[in-house]
């Protein structure tokens, strides 16, 4: 990672932190967008706590989806779960045609408003990319490496933990990254069902016709997403290097 390429990242991160901790410092930039003396900076709650609860729900949901998706992905690639492999592939394919907002909307009448439907939507929708990538990671392990592992007397468990999972890791991480990014967006929409998150700022702006709110909410979410995407990308590249692949091979 050269200094030149990481400089914009660091700058963006500093800007984001500065904005959510002391938004008033930036009011000069948003004032021109307001009308009728409306506030330039979101004033119905702390941006910092909104950001933190936004991140919290995304993190928890991703953690839960990762665990389940990994377990399922491992199961259907074992001989005992092989029967379910073709179907699970089709299901992932079909599942991804459901827009996340539909999942969110359908969850509301079932569990009520608040964090719960958002968590359910994030969890369910987050499963798909991770499961899909776990599958392609595990089935993409070189058959020779597996044959060699078996031939050297590794037990199925040893093969899974010492060969298959480490080799599939970069692909699995790519799935987690995708899942996190989708969840960040869905969590924003979650504010329409009263989950605490950065979507509140945008929606408050839309409701009060305050473009300044809409813009700052949008910018914070966007910066957050880009930075997290980027950070997870670095983790992925490290994993790819650890798994002994040249950088460009692991996407």
């Amino acid at each position: 990672m050269s200094l030149r390429s990481s400089a914009p990242r660091v700058a963006a991160l500093l800007l984001l932190v500065a904005f959510v901790t002391a938004p008033q410092l930036f009011s000069f930039a948003f004032e021109p967008l307001t009308a009728n003396n409306a506030p330039a900076i979101y004033n119905q709650g702390s941006l910092l706590s909104l950001t933190l609860s936004h991140l919290r729900i995304v993190f928890l949901a991703t953690l839960a989806s990762t665990m389940l998706a990994l377990a399922l992905g491992i199961f259907v690639t074992r001989p005992s779960g092989h029967e379910f492999l073709p179907l699970s592939r089709s299901l992932v394919n079909i599942g991804q045609t459901f827009p996340p907002i539909a999942v969110l909307a359908i969850a509301v009448p079932l569990v009520g408003f608040g964090e719960k439907p958002t968590f359910i939507a994030l969890f369910l929708y987050g499963l798909l990319p991770i499961f899909e990538n776990t599958l392609s990671g595990l089935t993409g392990v070189s058959p020779q490496a597996l044959d060699a592992a078996k031939g050297m007397g590794m037990s199925p468990r040893q093969r899974l933990f010492q060969v298959e999972l480490p080799l599939a890791l970069p692909v699995i991480l790519a799935g987690i990254r995708l899942s996190v990014i989708i969840s960040l967006g869905t969590a924003t929409i979650g504010s329409t069902v009263a989950a605490k998150g950065l979507g509140e700022v945008i929606i408050a702006g839309l409701q009060s016709n305050n473009v300044a709110f809409v813009l700052q909410g949008g910018l914070v979410v966007a910066l957050l997403a880009v930075l997290i995407h980027d950070g997870l990308g670095i983790a992925e590249r490290v994993a790819a290097r650890r798994s002994g692949r040249p950088l460009d091979e692991a996407r």
Binding site: S142, Q144, A145, L146, D147, A148, A149, G151, M152, V163, P166, L167, R242, S243, G244, R245
Partner: peptide, 11 residues
């Protein structure tokens, strides 16, 4: 056990 392509563990 040695196979064609060797099956070295890339990681």
């Amino acid at each position: 056990y040695v196979i064609q392509g060797y099956g070295l563990f890339p990681h």
